[in-house]
Amino acid sequence: MSLADDERAYPVVGLSLADQLAAEGLVAGVLLVPERRLPLGGPVVVKIGGARIALGREVAHRVMVRGVPDVGVRAPRESAP
């Protein structure tokens, strides 16, 4: 599943590049909200809490998330929980 397909919230369940991503708060258990996917293979911008993080497409592909319908979580449009 691509991160930037919609605006739902996804609980993160696994990571690659763990150190770098953990420093940005992208650890298993957090909710992230995809905000924008730049064209031509550009970065994906996600919201984690009050922060906006740009992830290169290669990194974004390594972030494993679980679909919202499984857990019934949906983040508000304007701000992440």
């Binding site: 940005e24 911008v45 906006r52 993080i53 740009a54 992830l55 497409r57 990194v59």
Partner: peptide
């Protein structure tokens, strides 16, 4: 320079 310098390209992880 990108062609001449060996190595792997990194990718962006950046807080806006």
């Amino acid at each position: 320079a990108n062609r001449l310098v060996p190595g792997r390209q990194s990718t962006i992880v950046l807080e806006l």
